[in-house]
Design a protein around this nucleic acid. Structure first.
Lengths: 210, 210
DNA sequence: CGACTATACAAACGACCGGTCGGTCAGATA
DNA sequence: TATCTGACCGACCGGTCGTTTGTATAGTCG
């Protein structure tokens, strides 16, 4: 537990490798990305990876963890600084849109790519991704429930239903914007969630008009 | 142009190979799927493919074409037998849900997997997939416009906006149902589109209540 | 019948894959 | 000082990738 220059250096390059891995995986996927190309992109040697991870799957699992942390920093945290209720709910959606439009990750969304890659492939990575997505879904549901308790959403609003809609409308942004729509998908996704929330909110003035 | 038993046989195995390709690609993607495994799955030899396609990319392009045809048969055609207007629009969404829940493709949706795979990778396959998705989007928009002309959707309904919402809510079904939700995602997606259409329809009685 | 063509095959190619190996070197320990 | 350890490397392994080559077979046509 003393300060060890070797371990410090190791931790630093470990973080750098994970950041590159998540970025590249958002484009090519976690399996499509080969260790050789990853080594070239990070300026290290292929075999150097095995000082940090036992095999490729361990690197993939750590990459999922890293991406989840990045998501919390860029999307969840900004939303939590908004007042609870529908405003926080919409702030979450807007933070997500900003994450996409700012191009934080070259491929748009790490979890979208990885979900599509592993949804039919059983294994440790599948389970880890599924857990992350379940936690994300439950988090949106909690915000919906909180908004209902504050009287900012009508009683009929079903948290699971609304959470599904918000997530689906947000997640499909990247694929639409990249394949044909361009920036139009961003405004469509923003307006869709905004209108949905306003329709369910007794005080629509809490939210922007458009 | 005479009847040639060889070409007939060739066409038959060509179709059989394409069907297997689309099915497997809906799970593993078009690039993730290797010719060796594809050969094993179709009971042919790896090199036999090159009698039908110049290289892997040509097979991928034909697979996209085949999947588009399958989609039209299973989703578009059933919707067209419904009366035009909001009922046809909702029939389209329901046909899609049935396509997913029936498990027509082992991976759920070919285009979802392939979109995620090629959205950031330029090339012929990317362009072909993008065209297919644009045509699909435009088709939904035409149905929305038609419903407006029939007075079954209010004038404020924006075709591009509504088409985006319908497609996004439908498309995210598979990933949700496969990774955590189970069948709940199907009912969420169905109800979301139904409520959206009923809210925009002057005669909600045209649509089921739930 | 032979010439030709479409279909299919086994074998082999170079390139690249994930992973292992022995070794180098800097920093910690005593 | 000598010893040990963690980070990192180049070289290499067996295996799989997409593709090429050469060959066999079956159907068509002159």
């Amino acid at each position: 537990m003393t300060q060890d220059g070797r371990r410090l250096r190791g931790l630093r390059s470990r973080e750098a490798i994970l950041e590159r891995t998540v970025g590249l995986a958002s484009v090519e996927g976690l399996d499509g990305l080969s260790l050789g190309r990853l080594a070239a992109a990070t300026g290290t040697s292929k075999s150097g990876f095995f000082a940090h991870w036992r095999d490729k799957e361990e690197l993939q699992l750590d990459a999922v963890e890293w991406a989840a942390r990045q998501w919390k920093e860029h999307v969840v945290a900004p939303a939590m600084s908004a007042p609870p209720g529908v405003r926080r709910l919409f702030a979450l959606h807007e933070a997500r849109m900003r994450f996409y439009s700012d191009g934080v990750l070259p491929g748009g969304c790490f979890f979208f790519t990885v979900q599509a890659e592993f949804d039919d492939r059983p294994g440790a990575v599948h389970d880890r991704v599924a857990r992350a997505m379940r936690e994300w879904q439950e988090f949106i549901q909690r915000l919906v429930t909180q908004a209902k308790e504050l009287g900012e959403l009508v009683e009929e609003a079903d948290p699971a239903q609304l959470a599904y809609e918000i997530d689906a409308l947000g997640e499909m942004t990247i694929i639409h914007s990249r394949l044909h729509d361009g920036p139009a998908a961003l405004t469509h996704a923003r307006r869709a969630v905004l209108q949905r929330l306003r329709a369910l909110c007794p005080e629509p003035a809490l939210l922007p008009e458009d």
